[in-house]
Amino acid sequence: MAERYILLVEDNPDDEELTLLSLRKRSLGHDIVVVRDGVEAIDYLFGTGPYAGRDVSQVPTVILLDLKLPKLDGLGVLERLRADARTRTVPVVVLTSSSQEADVRACYDLGANSYVRKPVEFGAFVETIGTVGWYWAQLNAPPPVRGPC
């Protein structure tokens, strides 16, 4: 079995650092791969562009997806993932600052598994992110890995 990892799609270095810190406080037994915009996320997952040749059968246990991203935004990424058989079932947790009803609805409509607002207060942030990571990485049973077809 290949290495298990969490894919974090986050353009803000502050949030990236705080998120990584929060996740590492828990022993999740996962690598954390960080990509910094929507296009990079797609390239990474489908082995295109700079990630050409990557073994795309290696899907992340969970994708932590920010909504506001350069080039292609979170909703665009989500749409592409759900349109592709290889990534259709990969759990996606939308991690964002937005509490707009419209965003929440759009995410679920596009097949997000969870929607979590990033708390501003640090304690709450660490707790929230840690819990999300723990739940998806430890508690949740991931969809069975597809063999090459």
């Binding site: 949030d15 937005s98 501003v120």
Partner: peptide, 16 residues
């Protein structure tokens, strides 16, 4: 909602 919370979270987070 989105943009101001980001930097605020950074201030709060790193101060913590």
């Amino acid at each position: 909602s989105h943009d101001l919370r980001g930097p605020l979270r950074a201030i709060a987070g790193f101060a913590s």
